[in-house]
């Protein structure tokens, strides 16, 4: 899933300040799961914004709506009427959702209310961890299902750096060293030999380094 975190009230206030009628638009998929932009967060943020403006003697009209997914046209359409009634949209979706809405409604300012942070998993209640950078050339088979691109702070492809200590990464004692995990897992799988092989420099063309990417599925294009 995509993991994000709601921006601070102060920053959101700043960006919505010019608008009198605001649609706070939630997304019911990833950002809902990470408590950044689902229905509950839409309600809480709207209430907080109203209180914040009222306190300063300003008024703002806020409408609240949450659609299933802001990154799919089918669901975006459900927001069309609400969007037409307001002067701006504060989207609590990930960056993709915000842009999908903006692309669809050319004349309405669409503002981000969430900082999109990573592709990750819910490791346990309240804890989300980064797992994938979308490099476009997945090599998890070699690394025992632990990604050195996203989970090693130096993206090392040929083994741990000299800072790996007690299973933790040199950058932070709270961060696991991906390479320790790779080695532990490959040892358990009896595949440690994977790591004797030299891994050549990664071809980053498939990653974001090659510019914005596109996926075309001819079989689905009509």
């Amino acid at each position: 899933m995509i993991v994000g975190k709601q921006k601070s009230i102060a920053e959101i206030r700043e960006i919505v300040l010019p608008y009198k009628k605001l649609l706070v638009l939630g997304c019911g998929t990833c950002v809902k799961t990470c408590f950044a932009g689902g229905e509950d967060e839409v309600a809480t943020l709207s209430s907080a914004l109203r209180l914040s403006f009222k306190k300063d003697g300003r008024s703002i009209y806020i409408e609240e709506l949450t659609v299933e997914r802001q990154c799919e046209d089918e669901f975006i359409r459900e927001a069309a009427v609400a969007i037409s009634k307001n002067t701006a949209v504060l989207s609590l979706a990930c960056g993709a959702g915000v842009q999908a809405i903006a692309r669809r409604f050319a004349n309405v300012p669409v503002l981000p209310g969430v900082n999109t942070t990573f592709i990750g998993v819910l490791e346990k209640q309240g804890l989300f961890t980064e797992e994938c950078l979308g490099c476009g050339d997945c090599q998890l088979a070699v690394f025992g299902g632990v990604c050195p691109v996203s989970r090693c702070a130096k993206k090392l492809q040929n083994g741990p750096c000299g800072g790996s200590r007690n299973g933790k990464c040199e950058i932070n004692p709270d961060t696991d060293c991906a390479w320790q995990q790779i080695i532990t897992r490959l040892t358990a799988l009896g595949q440690l030999d994977n790591l004797r092989k030299y891994n050549p420099p990664k071809d980053w063309r498939t990653s974001h380094a090659g510019g914005p990417r596109k996926l075309v599925r001819e079989d689905h294009v009509i």
């Binding site: 509950d40 809480t44 209430s47 907080a48 009222k54």
Partner: peptide, 11 residues
């Protein structure tokens, strides 16, 4: 008790 109920009480 949800966050929004507490805030709405202030509203």
């Amino acid at each position: 008790v949800k966050d929004v109920f507490l805030l709405r009480a202030f509203e």
